[in-house]
Design a protein around this nucleic acid. Structure first.
Lengths: 202, 202, 202, 202
DNA sequence: TATGAATGAGCCTTCATTCAT
DNA sequence: AATGAATGAAGGCTCATTCAT
């Protein structure tokens, strides 16, 4: 009665993972559906069983990528000193990105695509949300530090944005091969820099 | 007696400027040669009189864009205190980018394209050079500050990279519409943050 | 003991009926096998248990459609006056088509397909036979009328063809929405026109 | 200054003519753009210089076909007796169609396509207009005949529609190979039939 | 027997590039 | 030197058909 039994969800994820590799390697604009089909070892037509069109596949890859960050934001708590919390957060981020440098490729691609107006508002929305999640965690940590008397009362929003921007920028340099983000010294250097900027006593 | 005296170099630059507008608006991957021809008010075939192919046109636009930064790097001197020099540099950068937010679009596009391996090594090289120019200026300022006893002796290279990354990241947020980089408070906030991180006395 | 007794012939007919609906709605060139599978509430693969390929399914639908006309031709007899017989035949046809305007759609579709040479000789044959059946009935009635002295001795074949053509044309106009073939006046108008053309006394 | 000088309108017409042949031969649903490109001896891309997409090419062919009828309708006047005018009109039509039997193919294809709902309303409109033009001419002739006392006062609209339907139907039979519309006897037979139906004296 | 997931041939359409004028 | 008509390679997507279950 029933033909080939397939876990469609699992297969969809498998395709997404292969597609992410392909997009990371060839670029969001240059990769071909046939590249993905080959990488995932399925026929071209099969891709369209799981994704309406190329764009839907790309979006799925991006969402899948964003989902991988949820855990990081959730892993932060405010039990310890604000200084320790911030060091911990920075450290976790560097570890995560060091391990997933490939998927960062695709993120920059998405953001680049998001820059082109009108059509890609959805990308912007998704990306903005991810960005805000990062910023929100930092804001929580910094405000907690101010409340605890560890940090000076600075412009929290701008500081948080600047910190995320800095991490983003360093990550970008890593992707570009300008510096080596797997260098274990990074978290300490960056944390120090931020904490010095925040310290009451300097 | 010559039937039509045309300054080929001037016309080439005119095309580059129009092409830059087109690329900024449509994106480095989506713009068409015909878009450029229309914008520059020349025939499609004419473009090929000035540029071997699409890639050469794109590269020319990127180089033209990079050249616009040379002045900024050159404008920095070390006559004043390191703190003042750094504030001045940050301030100049924000002013420049606020005025040329459109051309930043294209930079991110180039960098995104540069991420795709093999073929685009040239872009990476060009971009790396531009990045290094920025970093070099900061390194000069910071080292000068250390020598003058204004700054602590920190990991200069990483600090400089982090600062450029931060500026890059904030700029990116501006392009994405996440924050407003024309806000006049940015230079002071960022300068303070950096200087606090560098200060001996805090 | 047999696990599932299925009347294959009945199921085949059920599929044909659903397929006819689908073809009528979507058009002979635009309908998809999956449309039929959905409409008939069977799997796509199942269709191929009953029909070798799409073409065989289409042909089966057409034959099924043609069969519905056999009764009409058979219902005609020559007991009454030729004038009455012709009026009766015209009237029956209009009633039949008024009730089955939907299936006329499919007929025109078949004919349209039949127009494409080479491959579809079979359609032409089937259609020609149906056409000839209609014409034959008219020829019988007219010849009967001539024999009975009611009609003039005209070119029977051409007259019959013209009459069928006229009915066909009016039907087509009805399908196209140009006129309303359910208007009860049609049979009388058409019969009068034909009979005036055939009358000895005018 | 100016490249290849081409009469774009003439070339467009040439493509339309070749496309009409192709569509007539292969069918409106089965022909491929590459068929047309081959027939017109141009590259596939060239077709898209003249027509936005396949549908626009098809529509252009149809409109071109319809335009060929305008002259016929215009050629009718009411100077002579209504009987003579009608004979003349019928005769002109048969001559025209005999010469252009190929383009009739495409007309039936259009009409068939027009039958499929929603999307093809434009075809229906174009076709309805053409149909009405034919009917209008007949109505003029018949009304003129009634006024002149040559014809009986019958339901003019239905008569006219029936006559056009008849011509349409016979034409269809011709296209289908069921009868030979180039047979010179047709105009006389049909005219007689119609005139007998219209005559006061029979 | 029934199914629907998988497939890939095939077709429309785009666009960088060429070249006759 | 300048042009834009012409081109065809390339790639996204559809859908009839197959076949493992």
């Amino acid at each position: 009665m029933s033909p080939r039994i397939v876990n469609k969800q699992a297969k969809k994820e498998a395709i997404i993972q292969k597609a992410t590799e392909v997009i990371s390697a060839k670029g969001i604009y240059s990769f071909k559906m046939s590249d993905v089909a080959d990488a995932a070892d399925v026929g071209k037509g099969t891709l369209y069983e799981y994704f309406k069109d190329k764009e839907e596949l790309v979006t799925a890859c991006y969402v899948y990528f964003l989902d991988s960050f949820i855990d990081i934001a959730d892993s932060v708590d405010l039990k310890n000193s604000a200084r320790a919390n911030l060091r911990s957060y920075i450290s976790v981020l560097f570890k995560h990105f060091s391990k997933n440098i490939d998927s960062v490729h695709i993120a920059f691609d998405f953001w680049s695509q998001a820059l082109q107006s009108s059509d890609n508002r959805q990308y912007v929305k998704l990306m903005t949300k991810a960005y805000n999640d990062f910023v929100a965690v930092l804001i929580r940590i910094i405000k907690d530090g101010i409340k605890k008397g560890e940090f000076r009362a600075i412009d929290v929003e701008k500081y948080a944005a600047a910190i995320v921007g800095m991490l983003d920028g360093i990550l970008f340099q890593g992707v570009m091969g300008i510096n080596d983000i797997t260098d274990a010294k990074w978290p300490r250097v960056i944390s120090n820099m931020i904490l010095n900027g925040l310290s009451k006593t300097g």
